[in-house]
């Protein structure tokens, strides 16, 4: 499977590691180049410019084969550069729920990405995802539910 991950924070990097470990192909996008450090320490930097801006840089990890692209995950042109047209799945897990939602809508409606899933930080926004037909997971709600179940068991 080819997966595009938006957001290289704790969740995104963990997910990228898991997927690559199972032999899947991963491209990861983050606005902040430093975030890619979360992926591991053996990064070999390779800069790739996009045709539109000439400014977007990408880094390639030697061992883990994760393509890293610097830019905003709600920028359609950047998502195209990241190869959204050919991916099997998009996962958006930045720390901004609206960025995740926008990336998901672009992936689903404009590029027909077969599998789209996002992280939502504020549980109140789960309803937005639901109304827009986007599969969403709120770690906070899941965590609280698990704690609750553990308590009353």
């Amino acid at each position: 499977m080819k997966a595009l991950i938006v957001g290289s924070g704790r969740v995104g990097s963990f997910l990228a590691g898991q997927l690559v470990g199972q032999g899947h192909e991963v491209v990861i996008v983050d606005r902040e180049p430093r975030s890619f450090k979360m992926l591991g320490e053996d990064l070999v930097v390779q800069r790739i410019a996009t045709p539109e801006t000439g400014k977007v840089q990408a880094t390639l990890t030697a061992k883990t084969r994760i393509r890293c692209i610097v830019g905003s995950g709600s920028d359609e042109e950047l998502l195209k550069t990241a190869g959204i047209q050919g991916v099997d799945a998009l996962v958006a897990v930045t720390d901004n729920d609206y960025v995740n939602l926008m990336a998901a809508v672009i992936a689903k409606e404009l590029y027909q990405v077969p599998r789209v899933i996002i992280g939502i930080i504020n549980p109140r926004r789960l309803e937005i995802a639901q109304e827009l037909g986007v599969e969403a997971i709120c770690p906070l709600t899941l965590g609280a539910q698990a704690m609750f179940e553990s308590l009353i068991r």
């Binding site: 901004n96 609206y98 926008m102």
Partner: peptide, 16 residues
């Protein structure tokens, strides 16, 4: 002040 918020607000307003 954020394009993403504006898009989501418009989509919800229009569709829902």
């Amino acid at each position: 002040d954020q394009d993403e918020t504006n898009l989501i607000a418009c989509l919800l307003a229009r569709r829902l």
